[in-house]
């Protein structure tokens, strides 16, 4: 279920300017993605955990969302330890898991979770409109921000529409199976959703024209760089520099 857009939610959750949050998330992610040594990766994970604690993310939903992000990592654990040559640590029948392979899989797991954790702490709590305007201030093209905000605005609505179509199909006795009838039904439901989306888009376009839309993204949003935001930005920058130092020295 996609959360419907909240009407209000404040502009700066946690008292941190959304621009600072986004810039910190981008800077942290770009740096962490390059780390390869245990010291750098562990420092990044420590910082990400610190962020989660600082923003008081509740542990249970956090854990659930982290687990959801680890599907591909699980696939790597099943293959990588057995395909990297090196000193065999564990033997499973004809297969041998190498120390190098296990170390690589572990490093990837830690790095992946650090990145997702930072995204959950810094970006996910942002109210979408504020995030869009902040992205615009950070240099993202207006058209792209407009696409993002409009898509987000109508997402929950489109999902309801699609569920309505599926419920109607279910009431007529449709049960998904592996056959052409099932695929045709899904294709037609999708086609119907597309047709309705485009009709709705035309009405939205006309409403936008009535409100003076001229093809430019205008932002009246005011951001205030508070002392708290500045301190946070400085701390985040220091943490990234520290993890860089650990990566290069370690």
């Amino acid at each position: 279920m996609i959360p419907a857009p909240p009407v209000e939610g404040g502009d700066a959750p946690g008292g941190i300017d959304p621009r600072v949050r986004l810039a910190a998330a981008i800077g942290f992610s770009a740096a962490t993605a390059a780390w390869q040594r245990p010291a750098g990766i562990l420092a990044a994970l420590g910082f990400a955990l610190g962020l989660a604690a600082f923003f008081r993310l509740s542990p249970r939903p956090l854990l659930r969302r982290l687990l959801a992000a680890n599907g591909f990592v699980l696939l790597l654990w099943a293959i990588v330890p057995f395909s990297l040559p090196g000193e065999a640590l564990v033997r499973l029948g004809p297969l041998a898991a190498s120390r190098e392979g296990l170390a690589l899989a572990l490093a990837i797991t830690l790095k992946s979770n650090a990145l997702v954790l930072a995204l959950l702490a810094l970006v996910a709590p942002l109210p979408f409109p504020a995030a869009g305007h902040a992205l615009h201030r950070l240099g993202v093209p207006g058209k792209l921000v407009q696409l993002l905000l409009l898509t987000w605005r109508y997402l929950a609505l489109l999902e309801q529409e699609f569920h309505r179509l599926r419920r109607a199909a279910a009431l007529r006795g449709f049960r998904p199976r592996t056959d052409l009838h099932t695929y045709r039904t899904f294709a037609w439901l999708l086609g119907m959703l597309l047709v309705r989306s485009v009709d709705r888009a035309e009405r939205v376009r006309r409403a936008m024209l009535c409100r003076g839309f001229r093809g430019v993204f205008l932002s009246l949003h005011e951001f205030r760089l508070t002392r708290r935001s500045l301190a946070f930005a400085a701390a985040a920058a220091a943490a990234v520099v520290a993890s860089a130092w650990l990566e290069l020295a370690g």
């Binding site: 996609i2 058209k143 407009q146 696409l147 409009l150 898509t151 109508y154 997402l155 489109l158 999902e159 699609f162 999708l190 959703l193 597309l194 989306s197 485009v198 709705r200 888009a201 035309e202 939205v204 376009r205 936008m208 839309f213 001229r214 093809g215 430019v216």
Partner: peptide, 17 residues
């Protein structure tokens, strides 16, 4: 720019589907 709303709506529809 006239097609921004259409593109956004289609992006949403594909996301849902």
């Amino acid at each position: 720019p006239d097609r921004i709303a259409r593109t956004a709506m289609l992006a949403g529809a594909f996301f849902v589907a």
